[in-house]
Simulated scan of single mutants.
Amino acid sequence: MTQPCEQHPHAPTFDGLCGGCTQYPTDMVKPPGPAATGTTGYCPSCGRGDVAPSPEAYEQQRQRAEQAEAERDGAYRERAHLVALLAAMTDDAVITYAPDIEEPGWQIVYLTIGGQQCSWHIAPRDAELFEHVERVGALDVRALWDGHTTEEKYQHIAAHTAELAKGN
């Protein structure tokens, strides 16, 4: 057969294979794949999943991604406000440039909460919230990461919060 598959009607054929799919002979009967279930992005003829979405579907995906990114950035901005408040309420808070991030402008704020180090990366867009925090060099002992994980940090914060709440 020299005709391409229905999904790629303008594709050339090569030795009986659809040039759009280049996987199956155009006259081969294939078992129903994801396309049979109505899943988008799959060639209904060959079942391959590398078929581009329609322009409308692409635009919807792009808008959803932008919305998700804006929501994420908003949550990080809220977190930055709260960390800036904690820094103002904590003795010996310091901030330094983040050596572990290649993108310029990122910083790390280090706080001592309940006798233990807690640190957060601060995005360049949130830097102005931390102008009140003492800036130190990367080798300042107060800015040397002690190896705590994010999980350990929040476990410590929860325990310290519970201790503070008992005193009220």
Rank of each mutant, 00 (worst) to 15 (best):
A165S: 08
C18Q: 10
E59N: 13
A11R: 10
R142Y: 00
A70I: 07
L17F: 14
P44Q: 12
P55F: 07
V83W: 06
Y154A: 05
T90A: 04
P55L: 12
A158S: 10
Y110G: 02
Y24P: 05
G115N: 02
L86Q: 07
Q107M: 06
R48Q: 15
I157A: 06
E128Y: 02
D100M: 08
Y76C: 11
T96G: 04
D15R: 15
T150F: 07
H10W: 12
D27A: 14
V29S: 13
T112D: 02
F14D: 12
F14N: 14
Q60W: 05
D126M: 01
Q63E: 13
P55C: 10
Q63D: 12
A36L: 06
Q61D: 13
D140E: 03
P34E: 14
Y58I: 09
A127R: 10
H156V: 01
D15K: 14
G105F: 02
T2H: 15
P31Q: 14
L144E: 05
E102A: 12
E128Q: 08
G115L: 01
P32V: 08
H10S: 15
Q7F: 13
W120H: 10
G147N: 05
D92P: 00
T112W: 01
A93L: 03
K166W: 00
R77N: 09
R62K: 15
A84V: 04
Y42S: 10
Q155E: 07
T37P: 05
H148P: 01
Q107C: 07
I122P: 01
L129C: 05
A162L: 04
A80E: 03
Q3P: 12
H81C: 11
Y97W: 06
P12I: 10
L85C: 08
E56K: 14
